[in-house]
Write a protein that binds this DNA or RNA. Sequence first.
DNA 1: CTTGCTGCAAACAGTTTGCAGAACT
DNA 2: AGTTCTGCAAACTGTTTGCAGCAAG
Lengths: 143, 143
Amino acid sequence: MILEKKKAFNSFAAEKGLRSTRQRDIILDIFLSTHQHISVEELYLKIKSSNPGIGHATVYRTLKLFAESGLAREIHLHDGQTRYEHAMEGEHHDHLVCTGCDTIIEFEDETIEKLQREIASRHGFKINNHKMEIYGLCSDCRK
Amino acid sequence: MILEKKKAFNSFAAEKGLRSTRQRDIILDIFLSTHQHISVEELYLKIKSSNPGIGHATVYRTLKLFAESGLAREIHLHDGQTRYEHAMEGEHHDHLVCTGCDTIIEFEDETIEKLQREIASRHGFKINNHKMEIYGLCSDCRK
DNA sequence: CTTGCTGCAAACAGTTTGCAGAACT
DNA sequence: AGTTCTGCAAACTGTTTGCAGCAAG
């Protein structure tokens, strides 16, 4: 499954005429080995520890490519950092964010998705994308 | 209704022991006269044109106060700028954002809100806040 | 007179960009 | 060889902060 994602990215790269480089391989490996919602900085540090010499810019540029290839999805929570999560096509989930401990819980709700489609079509919109975040306190942080 | 919002802010200010200043009055007036979803920069320019000498920092600081007082609500669309919209308590709406022309359409859906509350309680969350944005193309931009 | 508020500039954080050299094909 | 990619540092953008002077209570 990790392997299949690598293949997916490689065929995207081939199609686009992108070169296969050591850095992109490393970043892809490490990204695929992470948990969800990693920030660029976190990923950069993780990469740096095993591969000093890889620059910030490369990480930013490469993650943009992953997003373009459909392998990753950019998400913006309310903390001013760009995060990336693994994306598999079709599937989509939303987030419950605890403002106490920064835990993020994912959920999916087909009824909500359906209502969204209805609202969009009522306004003549063609949906590309959507996001929904619920902010609050998780059971632990409510004390 | 604008007057009543001013009163609301004034009583918030009084409660908090904040001083009443010329700048805050001006910013409040201009903010209340704007359309929804104004970015800090847009508001700053608008203010500056009739009141040169008001600084960036004051606008930022004052908008934070408005948000704290419940008069305004911070929103973050995908363009890296903080925007503010008018808020009246209780009421909440979500956004359909056209990625073609940047039009923003507001909507409200009580069923979705209800489902959100259900999801949150299923995970033991206490909701403070939530946001939902649907990105796509509006009827005009679909051509 | 005391303390909070303002404006300015400098600091900051996250991200992007220009460029010379390195590395793919 | 030709061109893309990388790493670095510098540039940029949006926002915050420190501070001296100003103004409200």
